[in-house]
Design a protein around this nucleic acid. Structure first.
Length: 291
DNA sequence: AAATAACCCAACCGCCGGCGG
DNA sequence: GCCGCCGGCGGTTGGGTTATT
């Protein structure tokens, strides 16, 4: 069960952001659901005081921040048997105590079909591009990505829009093959900082972290490992230690100019080393080639 | 020509940190 | 100080394409 299904966001205009009832419901959903995503109606943690007037203000539809849309029935009502072909991967029956000892239930439906997934069409690209050019000046940021789909007329989640824009539609993105210089730079940077693709991509104008990551994983990594494994004077290829990790590593590359300088030195060294190894390989190949 | 394997990459997933209420 | 939303990031997946048998 996908965890995003349980997340209630505030992106939709109907959701009554920040109300006490919504906050309470968020807490309830975070509690005591089993592996199938159901909230145990008898669990003490799933009980809360919910005043009738507060409940009357609660929306019937809540947009999540993730991929799904949740739909709540009225109190005590049964859910939709077939909501127009929408799927319902989980149900959540929540028991409330309104303070008088009276309990009620409602059913939570999750609608995945309302959010389109998969490859983007030319029309979707055009809509997103048009929106971004008008409202974000064609820049990298939209301000609030979660609001983009509704404003741009797209049935996508904000996260998908952001990814599509940053990795594909954004002006200046280069889609062609990588040059030899870019190869060497990627190898050097990867050796220096490890899998910090956004950092590496930052040194390659027009390339995104996703491009660089894919390119490394599918092609460059094999070439580098082959070069190192066949070169007599080279050790095993060892990317940087995890100290460069973005998660609290002591040697955060971006945190000080001194470290930037040391990394520049490392890059130079690595570029030099890669050049030498490639040269050696060329010579080796020339010796192996039949004359 | 058909079946299978390998490759490639766009898109998705889940986690984390920053930030604001 | 706590909580939840949002954006950013790295890892992974799925399906289309190309190469090989």
């Amino acid at each position: 069960m996908h965890s995003a299904i349980f997340g209630i966001g505030t992106g939709g205009g109907l959701c009554g952001c920040g109300s006490a009832a919504v906050r309470m419901r968020r807490r309830l959903l975070a509690l005591s659901h089993d592996d199938l995503g159901r909230v145990d109606p008898l669990a003490s943690s799933a009980r809360a005081v919910c005043r009738a007037e507060e409940d009357a203000r609660q929306p019937a539809v809540v947009f999540t921040s993730g991929m799904a849309v949740t739909v709540w029935t009225q109190w005590g009502a049964e859910g939709h048997a077939d909501a127009g072909g929408w799927r319902r991967p989980c149900e959540c029956c929540v028991v409330f105590d309104d303070g008088t000892g009276q309990r009620s239930t409602r059913t939570r439906w999750v609608v995945l079909a309302a959010v389109k997934r998969g490859p983007w069409t030319a029309e979707e690209d055009a809509r997103l591009r048009s929106y971004m050019e008008q409202h974000a000046g064609g820049g990298a940021g939209a301000g609030n990505w979660m609001a983009v789909p509704s404003k741009a007329g797209l049935r996508r989640c904000g996260k998908s829009c952001r990814l599509r824009w940053l990795n594909y539609l954004r002006p200046g993105i280069r889609h062609g093959g990588f040059t030899a210089d870019e190869d060497r730079l990627i190898v050097a940077l990867h050796a220096a900082v490890g899998s910090r693709w956004s950092l590496i991509a930052g040194h390659l104008p027009g390339r995104t972290d996703n491009h660089v990551k894919n390119y490394w994983n599918t092609r460059l990594k094999k070439r580098v490992e082959m070069i190192f494994s066949f070169s007599p004077n080279a050790g095993n290829y060892q990317p940087s230690p995890p100290s460069f990790s973005r998660y609290g590593g002591a040697g955060d590359y971006s945190s000080s100019s001194a470290q930037s300088e040391s990394m520049d030195e490392m890059m130079v060294n690595w570029c030099s080393q890669i050049n030498q190894l490639e040269l050696q390989d060329e010579l080796l190949l020339q010796n192996v080639q039949p004359q």
